[in-house]
Structures are given as C-alpha cells and as structure tokens.
Design a protein around this nucleic acid. Sequence first.
RNA 1: CGGGGUGUAGCGCAGCCCGGUUAGCGCACCUGGUUUGGGACCAGGGGGUCGCAGGUUCGAAUCCUGCUACCCCGACCA
Length: 491
Amino acid sequence: MAKSIPSRSEDYSLWYNELVKKADLAEHSDVRGCMVIKPYGYSIWEKMQQALDKMFKETGHVNAYFPLFVPKSFLAREASHVEGFAKECAIVTHYRLKNSPDGKGVVVDPESELEEELIVRPTSETIIWNSYKKWIQSYRDLPILINQWANVVRWEMRTRLFLRTAEFLWQEGHTAHATAEEAVNETLQMLDVYADFAENYMALPVIKGKKSEGEKFPGAVDTYCIEALMQDGKALQAGTSHFLGQNFAKAFDVQFATKEGKLDYVWGTSWGVSTRLMGALIMAHSDDDGLILPPKLAPLQVVIVPVFKNEEELNAIRSSLEPVIQDYRKQNVTVKLDDRDTQKPGFKFAEWELKGVPVRLTIGPRDLGQGTVEIARRDTKEKQVIKIEQAVVDTLVLLEDMQKNIYRRALEFRKQMTTQVDSFDQFKKVLDEKGGFIEAHWDGTTETEAIIKEETKATIRCIPLDAKEEQGVCVYSGKPSNKRVLFARAY
RNA sequence: CGGGGUGUAGCGCAGCCCGGUUAGCGCACCUGGUUUGGGACCAGGGGGUCGCAGGUUCGAAUCCUGCUACCCCGACCA
C-alpha cells in the first residue's frame, strides 16, 4: 500500500491534494503559490489545449502572442478593471542585479530602477487593446478574432494546486467588432464552445449562465460563465466569456470609421479557460482509488499488464500482443505495455488506477493457452475475459461508453444535488446539510446578494440562460422575482 | 492578510513537554535469492545541513527570537 490516498468522505481537501501529487500531476514549487506541472499532468493540459485550439480555429480565431509585461499606466486606463486587479499584481521595478557588496550572492542594482514600472499581466485586455488601437481604423479591419495561450500572474493569498495558483496557464481570447450585436454573439458563441468542450471532452456537465453585477469581470458589461458541480457539493466556475461593450475601446481610444463614414468605438469581448480545468476534471470524476479520466483527455488510454514468471513467458506474451498493439495505434488509441519486471501485477493495477488510465488489459500464461485477455474499465472497475482478437474493438466500445458514463454519472450527481428552495431557512438548511446548487428566487439587487453571501457564504453562481420564467418572491427580501438563479458555495 | 497547526532520509511519521552516547520506525531505494492473475517475502546495505538564520548553554532536533514554506479556518479571487 505504498501510494494510497485519503478517502473523499474522510477529508475531501486532503484527498484532492494527495491525489494531485500521487498521480504525478503537479507539485508545489519553492516559489510561494506556484506549482510545477509534471509531465503526466501537463500532457492532460496539452490534450485540453489541442481540443480547444481546434475549436477556436474552427470558429475563425487565430493565435498571437502579446507581452508578459504591461505598463502600469495601461492598467489604470479602465477604472473598474484596475480596481479589480490592483490588489493582486506582481510589479517589476528594476531590470538588473549586481554582485552583493559582501560578496555573497546578488542584490538588486538600485541604479536600474525602471522609469515606468511594469505589471506582470493578470490578464491582457489592456496591452491588447493598446495594440488594437494601432490596428483598427475602419470597419474593414474588423472583426479581429485573436486568441493567445499564455501564463498570467495573480498574487493570490491562498493557493491550491490547479484551483488557484499565483501563476497559471490559460488561453485568453480578445475580439473586436463593429457592432454590439456581433460582439454579444461572439461572447455567447465562445460560451457555447466552452460548454461543448466541458461536456464532450471533460465529460463535465455545466450550466451556462450570466454573472450577477457583483460577480462579473471588472471591466465587462456582461460576464457569462459555465458552472460545474464538484463531488463535495461545491461549485466551480469552469470558464468565462465577457461582453466588454465599448469599455476598453473608450479607455484606449479605439475608434473606427463605419460604413456610413461616422466614427464609433469598437465593441469587444474576452473569454478564457485556465489550468483550473484540471482541478475541475479531477474533482468531478475521480474516486478513492485515484483519478478517473475521460478517455478523450487521458494521455494513456490503454495499459497492458503482462503476468509472467520469466523471460520466455514475457516474450510469448509480447508476440501475441504485437498485432493488438499495432491495431491500437492504427485506431489512434494510446497504449502502453507495462513490462517492468520490477513490480508485481497487483502493484501495477493499483498504480495505473491511481493515474486514471481508462482501460487495462491483463494477459498471462492462462490466457496464452486460450487466446484470451482480461479487460478492465477504470470508471466501474468491471472486468471481463474476452478473446484477444476482440480486444481492440471492445476497447473502442468501452472508451466511448466510459466517456458517456462518467458524464452521465456527473450529471446524475448534479441533478441529485440541485435543490429548489423557497424560504431562507430552507436555503440555509440545504446549504449546510446537503450542499450543491440551490435554485432560488432573488430580487436582483446587489445588496441582497451581498447579505446572502455574508450570512451563508453562498454566492450567485449564475443566472442560468435557460431559466424558466416563473413568478416568485426573493428568498431573502420577499420582493418579487421572475426567475430562479443558481446559488452555491464555490471554489 | 488575520487565527490555528505543521516542517526530522524520496514519501509518511516518532523523538521535542523534561537539552546529554552513534537521531529512530514504516514505505520507497540498492544487492542477492525465492516470487509474480489485486499494492510479494527473506537476508544484507546505502541515504539526514533535524525548514532557514540568529541566540541561550560545557552541550540544542529538543529552550528563546526572527524568517520561510505548506495545511486547515476566515477575507479576496479564475
């Protein structure tokens, strides 16, 4: 039992932290709040990137890269934006070191002070809109549909691997449009892309919605989001898409000549998902034995564990597997034969389960005589013995079924953990005893939202886009409301 | 950033209160052998600036001060 992890019911946070480390996804670095994403974790992120990048390209976007450093004055141009990020910025003040006078190490050279300090980007709206000003003169220059894959820094006080780190990886899309309508459509289109990705790749059911005034992005007119529910009943924002209106265009004076020959400010959007998705992926599906990865994002989809006593047996197994492995490769299934003779099969089973490999084949002397192989699925732990010729076909079916099954499981959980409440007492009771999403009427005011947050720690996750029109009264104030919004305690 | 806790071998911990041989245990690691269908066993072996920096003392993992990192709870946030 070298690598077992704590159970979810015992200590959910500890389970998460240990799982991230034991499954070799990431570890803390010696820099406060920062993590090292290890190869296995990074390869999952790469799979996410590949899928998302393709979807961005298919919707007409192109990639570019803007600088890590943002002049301090840029950030200040948009009032609510600077207010939103001021408290968590890393600032570059000097550009040179010199040998310490006492001969031990190096010190900042006081003569290298920058005239204007540089902010390490917490997000890139300002530096990008500063460029857009140069790029846009006429309606013919629009739209601009740019995405960038980058790291950003937000100096967080309290960090957790993947969920909140001082530096994280993400993509940020920044688009510029001639009309408000087009920008809103773009905002909603990218929200759909995120929801599509979450549900079809991550097998993570999400609720699309709009953020309340209190929860929206600083600088945006409207913020849309996808919200997911984790196994401990807490919500997690998995992606955001912002309609920026003309806020940044006005702040950076980005005007264009319309078809009618008039000058107008450009309409903007921005949208992003981050390595936080890794946290969502882990917390949505995994169990007390380790990771459960959706087949579409698993770096390794099939692992083969041979059972052998000696070199001859291993060789016999190898030759009977050769066509199978070839066939997997032809089907673009990633496969690995774990032929280490330093670990016993039982150890390997546990290790690959910890790492969330969807399908495992086990083959030993017993199978060789009969032309069979044992096939096991990670999500339900079911095993069966099949003909070796069937292995690849069965795997393909299994992978597809697992992708659907873990989605179904997560959706079923979310349904179970979504409660409609009509009184504040019930609201508090459900929150404390059950958790999950709460659908409740809200009077639409920031004041009520703030008081509920203060008293219950629950926030409005979103106003669901598909919320039904329904007359009711606010759970807190009793004032009229025409739809339910989604509350939860959140990450 | 506030309150609490922890930091001793790669990982998990004991020792600290009450200072005193050579700092110990489990897992992992190395060697040899027996094993191998759910985390093997036996024997032998290697590995430590006791988080960092000061201080008290004849003597510090142990006492004192400062710093740092992580964990939990709050405030803030993707």
